[in-house]
């Protein structure tokens, strides 16, 4: 019976939905995490009787041929890149992006990865690095005797060194933007990778046209909304249950057929 297989696709899709939702909830407090959503699409249709296209009346219910669908599939899981709230941390190396763009990070494999998590620190050589120790690109080195570090909205990093009064510019942080942010591939560790779907990055100074600005002393919170996630979880669970009900009903019908006296 087709109904059994159809319901199984429904259960598989809802299971994937629950996995995506639980990942969102688990990352509720991850810096600059972008929530994801599972996409559903109906599967192919089998046409048993071609459409005669007989219209009933002007109502919305329209008769067509006998087309029976094969269920549902989880198409894609995509990220919703809306801005997360900016949270004050007062840490001078914490940077948040207000608007579009990604920090560029050099991974150990030599590739450039992209992140919006600006909870940076400095390593033993004074370089600005992520929490995993990956260098921020273009490289910024803070002198050891710096008493104060300021990062302007446009990415200018200035330090006041001991015994001096005038600030000294040590570098400019550039941001990368993509035509299709949703096409970036998540690598884990808050990092994203360029793909064919995202297109090549365009780098620019913060505050330029189409690039967000930097805010020092803040980090970007995740854009997960717990209430809507919990609601989605309830819907997913009920939908899963409903599909399992279809399986047991279809099973009952088959068992009825089997019990026919011969």
């Amino acid at each position: 019976m087709q109904a059994l297989r159809t319901a199984a696709t429904g259960m598989a899709a809802q299971q994937m939905n629950v996995e995506v939702i639980s990942n969102n909830i688990a990352n509720m407090n991850t810096v600059a995490f972008k929530k994801q959503r599972a996409e559903f699409q109906d599967l192919l249709y089998q046409t048993f009787e071609a459409a005669g296209t007989q219209s009933s009346d002007q109502g919305t219910i329209v008769p067509t041929g006998v087309q029976v669908g094969a269920g549902v599939k989880a198409g894609a899981v995509y990220r919703i890149g809306t801005q997360g709230a900016l949270t004050r941390t007062d840490n001078q190396y914490d940077l948040a992006i207000d608007g579009r763009g990604y920090f560029q990070v050099l991974t150990p494999s030599g590739e450039t990865a992209y992140t919006r998590a600006g909870n940076f620190s400095i390593n033993d050589q004074g370089q600005l690095v992520t929490q995993d120790g990956y260098q921020v690109q273009p490289a910024i080195t803070i002198p050891g005797d710096a008493t104060q570090v300021t990062v302007s909205k446009t990415g200018q990093v200035q330090v006041i060194q001991a015994g001096q009064t005038a600030p000294n510019t040590v570098g400019v942080i550039e941001l990368a933007t993509f035509v299709n942010d949703g096409g970036l591939q998540a690598l884990g560790g808050n990092l994203l990778k360029e793909t064919a779907a995202s297109g090549a990055p365009t780098t620019g100074a913060p505050g330029a046209v189409g690039v967000g600005t930097l805010v020092q002393g803040y980090t970007e919170a995740s854009n997960v909304d717990p209430v809507s996630e919990i609601t989605a979880l309830i819907v997913a669970q009920r939908a899963y249950e409903m599909n399992s009900k279809v399986i047991s009903t279809a099973d009952n019908m088959l068992s009825t057929a089997n019990q026919l006296k011969t």
């Binding site: 019976m1 559903f40 006998v66 094969a70 939908a239």
Partner: peptide
């Protein structure tokens, strides 16, 4: 056949 169609409706309750 009707059951198949209902199963497809329920599978797509969130599509």
């Amino acid at each position: 056949r009707e059951m198949d169609i209902i199963a497809n409706n329920i599978a797509n309750v969130d599509t």
